[in-house]
Nucleic acid binder design. Structure first.
Lengths: 221, 221
DNA sequence: ATTACTAAAACTCGAGTAA
DNA sequence: TTTACTCGAGTTTTAGTAA
């Protein structure tokens, strides 16, 4: 997609075309873009052709609205900017301590994972995970983490079944170094699993409902 | 600024040119942008000309780095995308209490402003402003605010001079309701001015260097 | 008032190439 | 290898104008 078209798409979205229809003449769009009415008219035709917007030319005032495809195009662009500004600095996530189903501990006992943690994170993990529930705007940060590379944990087979891959992000929790682990095939839950060399719950005296800040340091792109 | 130049600036930033220098030949930049080496070379010259990047052509490998101006340009763009996808939730900004030059207090004594605050914000403002310095990633939120409408404060004339317009955003600071005021003709400083019915500095016992969280509630698009 | 066509001007691009 | 110039081809833009 060409840059001028994306710019036009963004302006239509800013004028309300993302969730609803934006009333926007080609002259006004031209003014917003700093080009002529004719050029803006062309932009609109291009966007229609590419299936990024729909139009309703009701005599006097045309109404422009982004399609799902158009919204996705903007979201991809947005993700690049987020990567630029949110990843450059350490990420902080606030989470509420919760008790999981115990599967975390089951996976943490598998040697196929343990050896990778030793090698790639540099510590022998305690055989249990600390589950943090993430809420509100911090969920955006969780989504961002999912889009980053992190430290790859490879999948492996053992005892006739496959253990899926994951990615880790070194972090600190109340000064204790640890790591966030995200399964590659995630269910997009709002839960962060934290592993550490020690039993974080005991070492830090954490109870269900406690709110903690997790600092995720400079993850790789 | 033209869209292709912005695109090039973004790619340089994504390759590490935001905080540090990106090693990036014009051929590689061309590949990233989907244009020829020659066109990418032109882009670089344009960005240098506009003062958005600096370059260090050390023989074999040129190093490109964004200037403060270049970083700001990207941040403004980012703010527009955030406006599209994130405005639904209340904004939180962290700021450090600082002492300004006292012009804030001068403006706050002008009846032309005071009457508008009474009418539009519903309180009689204390004749002084609390200056908060905003740093790091929160500067993006400041840009986002600048791109929003807020409560308009009209310009007016008095005593032979013109007092410029501004916009306000109702907010709370440590539970005390207040408002952020942004001049329309801003110098893009990293300072937020906060007004309130009370002397916030005294009422909350704030001193220079104290860090406070400002919650800006659901600003209008 | 709109949108959008035509034609010409103005740009931008990439090939060739120099340094 | 680099970067970046010239120049012709192709593309985009705008003014004029129709519908």
């Amino acid at each position: 997609m060409k840059a001028p078209a994306l710019e036009a798409l963004k302006q239509i979205a800013l004028r309300g075309g993302l969730g609803s229809a934006a009333v926007l003449s080609s002259r006004d769009l031209g003014t917003l873009l700093g080009v002529s009415q004719q050029a803006a008219s062309l932009r609109i035709l291009e966007l229609l052709e590419a299936g990024l917007i729909t139009r309703d030319v009701g005599g006097r005032q045309q109404r422009l609205q982004l399609t799902a495809k158009g919204g996705e195009a903007l979201r991809r662009e947005y993700a690049e900017y987020r990567r630029l500004f949110e990843v450059a600095e350490p990420l902080t996530v606030e989470g509420t301590v919760t008790t999981g189903l115990g599967e975390g501990a089951f996976y943490m006992r598998q040697e196929g994972y343990r050896s990778q943690f030793r090698q790639k994170l540099g510590f022998e993990p305690f055989s249990g995970t600390l589950n943090l529930r993430v809420e509100g705007r911090d969920r955006t940060t969780l989504e961002l983490l999912r889009s980053l590379e992190g430290v790859p944990i490879e999948e492996f087979k053992s005892g006739g079944r496959t253990y899926g891959g994951a990615k880790c992000f070194p972090a600190t929790l109340r000064g204790t170094s640890c790591a966030v682990i995200l399964p590659l095939r995630t269910h997009h839950e709002d839960i962060l699993e934290v592993i550490s060399a020690t039993n974080l719950r005991e070492a830090l005296g954490l109870k269900d409902g406690n709110v903690v800040e997790l600092h995720i340091g400079k993850p790789a792109g």
